[in-house]
Write a protein that binds this DNA or RNA. Structure first.
Length: 910
RNA sequence: GCAGGGGUAUCCGAGCCUGGCCAAAGGAGCGGGACUUAAGAUCCCGUGUUGCAGGACUUCGAGGGUUCAAAUCCCUCCCCCUGCACCA
């Protein structure tokens, strides 16, 4: 189907507004999460929306009143970041967006103009929203565009504000401190996108326990990931080459590295610098371990990184290979102190590993690996030594948390956050961890909320079913989540100025918004009127009718909600999808809970993940031109099951194109056929086979297994046609297909709607096939199909014998199983033991054994002799031999091998 | 580590839930043939080993087990992938 014809139908569909339903009847409301509109979409997105559309079209043809809406997501920082970069003339971004715009705009001057307009972030969103809509239209999606909106517009803001009013009243919002990656130079939190190589080498936040050691008038602060080892500290390490500060933190005096101080400013309140020291200052001085009361020396070690945590390290040589190595380096006579018992190690595990890895000194790179091993082993199989008060005998994994808590609660330690690796922003500024004070959270750890959501997960539908378990898991694991940010597009947080509701948190129950937005616009309601009372009435039927039009608006909601099916990729499971469920249980009564979720697998290209950096992203923009919408849709649906990974292979598309063209040719010539042909045996076979496949396909489609349906109704039936051609005059084929043509077009219409619509039209129909009803029930003669299978099996067997024996047949004797065997095998099928009891003599028993071993299933009700007679000429022609059924003589002694459905054969040589 | 998914013939991938025509669908690749001046495209045939009677043997990460029967069920082990949070 060429792009021109596809465009023709897209236009006609649109002009006739056939996908713009009013509520009523048996409704089906399907949604796909809206795309983030900061650039062109790619074929990965295309997979999801294609599935949404195929289902929408299928349900429509099953007689449902289908609503399939779409909108655009613009909330958050990325669009803002792009806009900023373009304004600052960042070459990389400018180049990228010039390329994006050029996908849609040929005129060079126009491209530059648009690019310039992107200095206004909203222009970016609007530009791409429009283009994405165009791309979707070019793929024939049956979307109701009256419902479209974007998430920074006023109406939507009012809607989100209302949700947060509700959540606040339910106490699902709470406030607290929160560590986050941050750039002091930019004065901003930074996300993965803002960090250099953040996408490939992720930066996570590591929680250190900063432990205070009494020193002079204050404390040396040594940070550790293993607070439980504090019992085994024998000294403290300082880097003699580094700079250290004396600082004041809420009245207490601390000694930390210079870099550490710069981080603490962002993590603690009222931190100020008092004095500077060289690292050497601390060497050989004494500090006191508050946990044990011991006085220990401060010793020099070069491995200490002043830019990691506090710049002091507590030394536990018994259990930390670095510490052990550093002590050896300075020839110290300090003896390690063992505090963890673990099987498989000597007195000092760190010493074992030091020897095993043949560590040279504290700079040996193997120390990383050694540390990992000991950490893992001790954490999972170590126990705190018995002599330790209270914690003795406790498993390390447990003691770690308890000791941390003990230290903090007794003022001996505080938490210090560090990045998992050294990181800088894209513009080269240092990234540290800052604590955001007064951060608002959605409290997904609320047990009542969790319980309600578990209930929903139990009740609703999942495609595939495995996700029910996964969602229960995700529900358990979900905890508080920050829901507002300092910057970005979106909706301002109603309870505190200067915060924007974060992008995933404003997109939870918005399918409800689709049901009313067109009506709000239609009646020109000013956004100020969309207050809490309005939404309370519209969505919850609470309170009085706020104004007359609200009734009409509410009918949109009650007419369509709940959302019957939501389709998206598995990337959304632990974020959008789970929030979607939580927020529904929070806000809506049970009858408006989501109906079901369909979760798709991801899409890769030629075995590799698509990514900007690899430059292998295929945009959706040129798909319709390059391949045609129907070919794309057919490929997406047929090349893999919806829940599995789809590997986009150009080679496969090419071969699929050929098949689709072949299909179109068949339709073409079939429509042209004017004469009526007689329906003989093979014609009946072809038609019956079609209806068998039709019913199979329909059954698959009802379970949304469209790939299996396509294989059945497209590939397999085309093979049936080939088979027919092999046996009959190919000329006749076209006219025979006429009998099934309408049903064939209908059943493929959800998948390749343009092709279907075009040929439906050429058949002289005045209706849209997109709005036709699929017949749910078609009769067919199963025996006819079985008998063809039977004949083909027989041919296989004969050929096989000919191959092996190298005999050219003159006559072929076919012996059919007698009634007695037929009876016996019937019994065998019902009751094995009874069959053996009833079998008489060795011969019969061996028949049963043979049948059992071959797992031979008899073809009941099939008249074998009749089948052979009906295909007699075919067999004769094929082997150029005479076929004799049940001859009186038995020269090969073969008669006894005959089984029902599997006759025995003897070939007489020429 | 926690959670989830997975290891199938040259490769990619179905099958596994509900054990039995499963030597294992479908692609791709490869080999052969047809068509073509030729390449390409397209179409047909073949593609574990073996056998002069439709069969036999070996094979679905490794090793055990259940069963008349295991790619499929159970146990143990090895290996791989994804997510782990503010990023949309």
């Amino acid at each position: 189907m060429n792009a021109k014809i596809e465009r023709k139908w897209q236009k006609i569909w649109q002009e006739n507004r056939i996908f713009e339903p009013l509520p009523g009847g048996k409704k089906f409301f399907i949604t796909v999460p809206y795309p983030y509109s900061n650039g062109p979409l790619h074929i990965g997105h295309g997979r999801t929306y294609t599935y949404g559309d195929v289902i929408a079209r299928f349900m429509r043809m099953k007689g449902y009143n289908v609503l399939f809406p779409m909108a655009f997501h613009v909330t958050g920082t990325p669009i803002l970041t792009v806009s900023d970069s373009i304004r600052q003339g960042n070459m990389e971004t400018v180049e990228l967006y010039r390329e994006y715009i050029s996908m849609y705009e040929n005129d060079k001057n126009r491209v530059e103009e648009i690019l310039k307009s992107f200095e206004d972030p909203e222009k970016i969103a609007l530009f791409f929203a429009e283009k994405i809509q165009r791309d979707f239209e070019s793929l024939g999606y049956s979307i109701d565009w009256r419902k479209k909106f974007h998430t920074a517009e006023k109406y939507y803001n009012r809607f989100v504000e209302w949700q947060y009013e509700k959540l606040f009243k339910m106490k699902y919002l709470k406030k607290g401190d929160y560590p986050i990656t941050y750039s002091p130079a930019d004065g901003n939190p930074v996300g993965e996108d803002d960090i250099k190589d953040g996408d490939t080498d992720k930066v996570t936040i590591i929680e250190f326990v900063a432990i205070k050691y009494r020193f002079e008038e204050g404390f040396i602060v040594a940070a550790t990931l293993r607070p439980e080892t504090t019992f085994g500290v024998v000294n403290i390490w300082v880097n003699p080459e580094a700079k250290y500060y004396k600082i004041k933190d809420n009245g207490e005096i601390y000694f930390v590295s210079r870099e550490s101080y710069e981080k603490l400013i962002y993590q603690r309140e009222n931190v100020s610098k008092l004095d500077e020291y060289d690292g050497k200052y601390f060497v050989n001085k004494t500090a006191r371990n508050l946990l044990t009361g011991e006085d220990i020396p401060v010793l020099p070690a070069g491995f200490v990184d002043p830019d990691n945590a506090t710049g002091f390290v507590q030394s536990v040589p018994a259990h930390a290979p670095y510490d052990y190595a550093a002590l050896r380096d300075i020839n110290s006579d300090i003896r390690p102190k063992r505090i963890i018992d673990i099987d498989g190690y000597g007195e000092f595990p760190a010493e074992d590993l030091y020897n095993r890895f043949k560590i040279k000194n504290q700079y040996d790179p193997n120390l990383e690996e050694a540390t990992k091993i000991i950490y893992r082993d001790e954490f999972y199989s170590g126990k705190m030594s018995e002599w330790i008060e209270y914690f003795g005998g406790m498993r390390v994994s447990e003691a770690k948390e308890k000791i941390k808590k003990y230290l903090i609660e007794n003022g001996m330690a505080f938490l210090f956050y560090e990045t998992s690796r050294k990181a800088v922003t894209r513009s080269g500024n240092k990234v540290i961890v800052a604590i955001i004070k007064g951060q608002w959270f959605l409290d997904y750890s609320n047990t009542e909320w969790k319980r309600k959501t578990h209930y929903l997960i139990d009740k609703m539908g999942f495609y595939p079913e495995i996700y029910r378990t996964i969602f229960h898991e995700v529900n358990d694991w979900l905890k508080e989540r920050p829901c507002v940010r300092r910057r970005g597009l979106g909706t301002e947080f109603p309870f505190e100025k200067g915060w924007i509701i974060e992008s995933l948190s404003d997109s939870t129950i918005y399918p409800a918004f689709y049901t009313i937005i067109d009506r709000i616009r239609e009646r020109n309601i000013p956004d100020e009127k969309l207050d809490e009372k309005f939404f309370d009435y519209v969505f919850l039927n609470e309170g009085p009718v706020p104004f007359e039009e609200a009734k009409y608006i509410r009918e949109g909601f009650t007419g369509w909600y709940p959302n019957d099916l939501r389709v998206s990729s598995n990337a959304h499971v632990s974020n959008h999808f789970i929030f979607y469920l939580f927020h529904h249980t929070a806000i809506f009564p049970e009858k408006y809970y989501p109906g079901s979720l369909m979760i798709l697998g991801m899409l890769i290209r030629e075995g590799a993940k698509m990514s900007k950096s690899k430059g292998n992203v295929i945009p959706l923009a040129q798909i319709a031109e390059k391949y045609s919408a129907d070919l794309f849709r057919l490929y997406i649906i047929s090349s893999s099951d919806f829940d599995k990974l789809l590997d986009w292979k150009e080679e496969e598309i090419k071969s699929l194109r050929g098949k689709l063209e072949k299909f179109a040719e068949l339709l073409e010539e079939s429509i042209k056929c004017r004469e009526d042909h007689e329906r003989g045996y093979m014609e009946n076979y072809l038609i019956n086979s079609f209806y068998m496949r039709y019913m199979n396909a329909l059954d698959f489609m009802n379970r949304f297994k469209f790939r299996d349906a396509v294989i059945e109704i497209f590939y397999n039936f085309m093979n049936d046609i080939k088979y027919y051609e092999k046996r009959e005059n190919p000329e006749k084929r076209a006219c025979i297909l006429k009998f099934i043509l309408e049903d064939w077009l209908k059943i493929v219409a959800p998948i390749i709607p343009h092709t279907a619509e075009e040929y439906w039209n050429r058949l002289g129909k005045n209706s849209f096939i997109s709005l036709e009803r699929l017949d749910e029930m078609k009769e067919y003669d199963r025996n006819l199909i079985l008998s063809i299978q039977y004949i083909e099996n027989l041919i296989e067997d004969i050929k096989n014998i000919m191959n092996v024996s190298k005999i050219v047949p003159d006559k072929i004797y076919i012996y059919l199983a007698d009634e007695r065997k037929r009876e016996l095998l019937k019994i065998l099928k019902e009751d094995k033991n009874r069959a053996f009891r009833e079998a008489k003599g060795k011969d019969e028993i061996s028949i049963l054994k043979q049948a059992l071993a071959q797992q031979y299933s008899s073809i009941e009700d099939l008249d074998e002799e009749d089948s052979i007679r009906n295909n007699y000429e075919y067999l004769r022609r094929m082997f150029s031999a005479e076929i004799v059924i049940n001859p009186p003589d038995d020269p090969g002694n073969k008669r006894r091998y005959a089984l029902p459905g599997k006759p025995s054969i003897f070939i007489i040589k020429k």
